[in-house]
Design a protein around this nucleic acid. Structure first.
Length: 516
DNA sequence: TAGTTCAGCGCC
DNA sequence: AAAGGGCGCTGAACTA
């Protein structure tokens, strides 16, 4: 049962009454329909309302447009509505226009029209059943992102400050270098005989040149090849500078409030379906920061990640019997080792090279083994690569469609460097089918998990194939069991009966750093 | 001066 | 140990 969520439709006279009305109607577990979760659901979440499922018109429109080969069109529900009526599409992200003429939210009838259109368009796709699952999972992602933004990941600012102070020295005045960074800069100045800005690649390269060392870049792996007294302090500087600018005091001032890190997640923000963030850098938090993520007293953090998700997904998608049997084991690479001369590492290189298009080192030799031993899995990614090289689009398992080639690519590919451009796109589409399906599995898993969690437990973090739940300590075991069930159910939802297992490794810890 | 691109590096 | 693809974010460098 689809129910548009607008104040008038739920019988609320004032915006404040919406929460109560939704809470009451949620008893029948409708599928709420809204234009955009951030607009419609975030205020409800703030009022403590949770709904079990929804259909997100904007997220669905994005999936549909891509599947229909209309990649560039605007994805908002409002744009979809305008297209239905042959009207010019409103400009998205046009904040100025909204300031002059405050945007009118879509009414019930408009929501119903766009919904009906979307449901009809889904039926016209090659695999409507799978796509419906994709739409449900993506929409659930919208719910989860809104709820995680509200809950936030525990972030102990006192420990964070202590960590920064230990590594950088006390918090400096705005715009100043922390003392330990300055000391390293001074050390470099003494070695080179003049001050340089170690953040400037140009100045660093020039200084080394004067000292008789030719550098192509200041990448740390290149610096590490060189024997020179300035290398060690420069590498130390680069590492600390990144800590300071990326995860420093200013970052915490902006993103941590009330002991919670609240980044802004963007569901489906990556073309493959992975999430992105819009500020906060939640998906690039340095591992050393995990020690400041600590459960509330009496609470615990359940940290779970899907081990070897991508090769397992490939095994299931390709229907490769041999690979699927190996993917029924806890350590997939170990199970493959005997096919690769008894070397687990070789099995891993072969799988990664197949999924990502690797060609260096032993990859060609190991790929030849893979082609012979696991022909269906090999062919599956080869087909995806070929499609990309030929300028076609590819689809994930549930039907997320890759972007079409750009005009720039089309002209490039017929030029002198065309082979290179074709191969690059082939690597992208090769990876798209695997990464995209892995992202779908993760969404489905989270959607199921969300429904299994005890009342007080909160999803607080998600990073591609890893989730974190903050819950009362005594519920840790229950949440770990829920994670296991969610993983099994997600695998069944996507792939039905398959020997492939996608286990989640879950632990209950007081501190994130203790999870691995 | 303000906006855009680049180099570099973190995460998966 | 790393290879590969996907990102976001920073300060520097460049452009208008």
């Amino acid at each position: 049962m689809y129910v548009p969520l607008t104040p008038s439709h739920v019988g609320a006279d004032r915006p404040d009454d919406v929460a109560a009305a939704v809470r009451r109607l949620e008893h029948d577990r409708p599928r709420w329909v809204w234009a955009d979760a951030r607009e419609a659901y975030t205020p409800l979440v703030r009022d403590g309302v949770r709904v079990s499922r929804c259909h997100d018109l904007a997220l669905t429109e994005g999936l549909l447009l891509a599947a229909e080969g209309r990649y560039g069109a605007a994805r908002s529900a409002k744009a979809a509505h305008a297209r239905l009526h042959g009207l010019p599409e409103p400009h998205e992200n046009d904040a100025g226009a909204d300031t002059l003429f405050p945007a009118e939210p879509l009414g019930v009838s408009a929501i119903e029209e766009v919904l009906a259109d979307q449901l009809a368009r889904i039926e016209r796709l090659p695999e409507p059943g799978r796509f419906r699952l994709l739409v449900a999972a993506e929409s659930a992602g919208g719910l989860i992102a809104a709820e995680m933004a509200e809950a936030g990941m525990p972030w102990n600012r006192r420990l964070h400050d202590a960590l920064l102070t230990e590594k950088l020295g006390p918090r400096p005045m705005r715009g100043m270098r922390p003392v330990k960074l300055q000391a390293l800069a001074d050390e470099l100045a003494a070695i080179f005989g003049h001050a340089i800005n170690p953040d400037s690649a140009q100045q660093v390269i020039k200084a080394f040149k004067a000292a008789g060392v030719d550098l192509k870049s200041t990448r740390s792996w290149e610096l590490k090849q060189i024997d020179h007294p300035a290398i060690a302090p420069l590498l130390a500087y680069k590492e600390l500078a990144r800590l300071h600018s990326f995860h420093g005091w200013a970052w915490a001032d902006q993103w941590v409030r009330d002991g919670r890190f609240r980044p802004e997640y963007v569901v489906g923000g990556v073309v493959t379906g992975r999430w992105a963030t819009n500020g906060g850098g939640a998906l690039q938090i340095h591992k050393s920061m995990r020690k400041v993520v600590v459960a509330e007293p009496g609470w615990t953090l359940v940290v779970a990640d899907a081990a070897q998700l991508e090769p397992r997904v490939l095994a299931a998608m390709a229907g490769d019997g041999g690979l699927a049997r190996a993917a029924g084991e806890i350590d997939l690479y170990a199970a493959l080792a005997q096919s690769f001369g008894g070397e687990r590492d070789n099995a891993k290189i072969a799988m990664l090279s197949a999924m990502y298009g690797g060609t260096s080192g032993d990859a060609p030799k190991l790929l030849a083994v893979m082609r012979q031993r696991f022909p269906q899995a090999y062919q599956f990614v080869e087909d995806a690569a070929r499609a990309g090289e030929e300028g076609r689009v590819v689809r994930s398992w549930l039907g997320r469609t890759s972007p079409p080639p750009s005009d720039r690519w089309r002209s490039l590919v017929s030029g002198p460097e065309g082979g290179r451009a074709a191969r690059d796109r082939g690597r992208f589409t090769r990876n798209f089918v695997v990464q995209g399906t892995a992202a779908e599995w993760a969404l489905a898993m989270m959607a199921v998990l969300r429904g299994l969690l005890p009342e007080a437990a909160r999803l607080v973090f998600f990073q591609h194939d890893e989730v974190m739940v903050h819950c009362p300590a005594e519920q840790g075991g229950e949440v770990i069991a829920a994670v296991g069930k969610a993983a099994e159910e997600a695998t069944r939802l996507l792939f039905g009966a398959t020997p492939v297992r996608i286990p989640m490794e879950a632990v209950a810890v007081e501190c994130y750093a203790d999870a691995k």
